[in-house]
Write a protein that binds this DNA or RNA. Structure first.
Length: 573
DNA sequence: GCCGTTTTCGGCCCGACTGTTTTCAGTCG
């Protein structure tokens, strides 16, 4: 059975954890973490590269040694290096690293001095007051560790972008009331529009950092203050979301914004470029010796290392720096490039608004066309439509379309892809529709080969247009079903059909890596709201963020096309 | 362990805050 990228990356991460606890060369540790990141964002199965005999050392951060280990992991499922480390150190130690306040040195001390090898053993030792005697530990560290274990508050917990956005907006509002504050920007993974965020990084410019910090930690919905300083403070909100505030003076704004936007890997790459030019880059600016030569704007920081400004969504060290150097950064799709939406629901199935309310909301959102795509008969919980109800609904859509100005209404369906890959409605009724969106809502646990075959067969149907939420995942709730998306994407190209990027913030499916794969394969992506009420079109912006992370320009997106061109594309022209 | 417009060896991003210290290590981002 083929070994997945995630499994290869997990082996490298575990090696890195254990090496770190053992006190190994930190740069060696970083090499393993970089390799894990490279494999995760590869966009192709590394097992396929190995099978094709490709040269893995061409991948960034992969040299002879790690290439050999990748081949080993793909073949055997593990690595002799990892197995040796596991014999030396208990594998449960890795989990301890992810507790706040515990790093490799302290975890090593816990293991060597107290024989601790798991969260449970750590909890018992902390409750018995045995931590505070260790070098580097005191009563505060002990208490913090205990609380984190009890609250299961490991630092790995993440939040949906949309949830974080609500809290961020409220906090920005709170900070505006602080005296002497000028700029306020939410940076970090939030600004890079990652689908989930681990914390919020808020950047302010102000003269008096201490005063802003004092105002910040006094936020009424703060549950805890972790630190408070003149330039940096940290609180934990009532929902468990951690927020870091940084305060700098205006001349440092661009450098600080660049630095706090990240990603870490992108920043390291940019700082190295600075180093090569004899520059030091930190959050206060770009320095030649003691003299600041840039830093008031992000553009000035990039310019100092010979690069054009790079959009935040691309800053993952996945080739954006090379593209910027070559002058080939993509022009990324924007919300206003979307001319239509091809997936939404009304009260006819499981939506909460009427046809008319949805059409008017879409028009108000600046859309030129909207396809109604109710669920089909097999999806009972959503009151899916059979052929007769669908025909009546199509009639209603056509009538409203004649009556309503300023937006074109299309008749469609979100048809169930059944277990065998057939579609849930007869061909003749599908033939009457403008758009057929196919979706998997059942039998999530089929083995990979069958799940893939099922979806490929559905795409072979002559009336099939768009594959909805292609992986079926629900962020932080449900894993994707096991499907070979690379094959699905190649098949979409051969069949002339399209993949959806579902903009619901619980889905954001396709993910960024597969958006980029679709782009590289020449398959257009449809950014759709899947709105279930007239408020749902606001979600399109999350889809656009994900598309930008996947390097999509307007030319890579189906629903940036004018209606006539869309109709031609749907007709296979 | 990776990598190369100073290099195949000797580098590898940089600073803030806390707790436990008595001048700084560890952690974090």
């Amino acid at each position: 059975m083929a070994v997945r990228n995630e499994e290869v990356a997990a082996v490298f991460d575990e090696i890195a954890d254990l090496l770190e606890i053992r006190g190994d060369n930190p740069f060696r540790v970083r090499a393993y973490r970089n390799a894990a990141r490279t494999v995760r964002s590869l966009g192709r199965e590394v097992a396929d590269l190995v099978a094709a005999g490709e040269d893995l050392t061409r991948l960034p951060g992969i040299g002879q040694d790690l290439a050999g280990k990748i081949r080993e992991i793909v073949t055997t499922g593990t690595s002799a290096t990892l197995e040796a480390l596991r014999r030396e150190l208990p594998p449960g130690l890795g989990a301890l690293l992810r507790l706040p306040g515990l790093g490799p040195k302290r975890v090593a001390a816990l293991h060597h001095e107290l024989g601790i090898d798991s969260l449970e053993a750590l909890r018992r030792a902390a409750e018995a007051g045995r931590l505070r005697g260790l070098p580097g530990f005191g009563p505060k560290t002990e208490a913090r560790v205990l609380e984190a274990i009890r609250a299961r508050l490991d630092t790995g917990r993440r939040f949906l972008l949309a949830e974080a956005e609500g809290w961020a907006e409220a906090l920005v509002e709170h900070l505006r009331a602080a005296r002497g504050v000028n700029e306020i920007v939410v940076a970090g993974s939030f600004r890079r529009r990652r689908e989930t965020v681990g914390d919020l990084d808020i950047l302010c410019t102000a003269r008096d950092g201490a005063a802003v910090a004092a105002h910040f930690v006094g936020y009424e919905r703060a549950a805890e203050v972790l630190s408070q300083g003149t330039t940096r403070s940290t609180i934990v909100l009532q929902n468990g979301l951690q927020v870091d505030l940084r305060v700098v003076e205006e001349g440092s704004f661009g450098a600080a914004l660049h630095y706090f936007t990240g990603s870490k890997a992108h920043n390291i790459a940019v700082r190295r470029m600075g180093q090569q030019r004899g520059l030091k880059i930190n959050e206060y600016g770009v320095f030649r010796g003691a003299r600041r030569v840039a830093g008031s704007t992000e553009e000035s920081v990039f310019r100092a290392v010979g690069l054009p400004w790079i959009p935040p969504e691309l800053r993952e060290d996945r080739g954006e720096i090379e593209a910027a150097q070559a002058g080939s950064l993509p022009r990324l799709v924007r919300r206003e490039d979307l001319r239509g939406d091809l997936h939404c629901h009304t009260r006819a199935s499981d939506g909460r608004s009427t046809l008319e309310e949805m059409a008017e909301a879409a028009r108000a959102a600046g859309l030129e066309y909207l396809a109604f795509t109710e669920h089909s008969r097999s999806l009972r919980v959503a009151r899916g439509l059979d052929a007769a109800r669908l025909r009546a609904h199509v009639e209603a859509i056509r009538r409203l379309d004649e009556r309503l100005e300023g937006i074109a209404l299309l008749a469609g369906i979100e048809v169930e892809i059944l277990e065998d890959g057939s579609l849930d409605l007869p061909d003749d009724v599908l033939a009457e529709l403008d758009v057929v969106v196919g979706a998997v809502h059942s039998h999530f646990d089929l083995p990979r080969a069958r799940q893939t075959r099922r979806i490929l067969r559905a795409m072979d149907h002559p009336h099939f247009h768009i594959l909805a939420h292609p992986s079926g995942r629900l962020l932080l709730q449900r894993e994707p079903y096991d499907v070979d998306l690379a094959r699905v994407i190649r098949h979409a190209r051969e069949r002339g059909c399209f993949l959806e990027l579902n903009a619901n913030p619980d889905r954001l499916d396709l993910d960024d890596v597969h958006c980029r794969m679709a782009r590289d394969e020449g398959v257009l992506v449809a950014i759709c709201s899947d709105a279930h009420s007239s408020l749902g079109f606001a979600n399109l912006r999350y889809g656009v963020g994900q598309a930008r992370r996947g390097w999509l320009g307007p030319e890579h997106v189906l629903n940036t096309r004018p209606l006539e061109e869309l109709r031609r594309l749907l007709a296979g022209g």
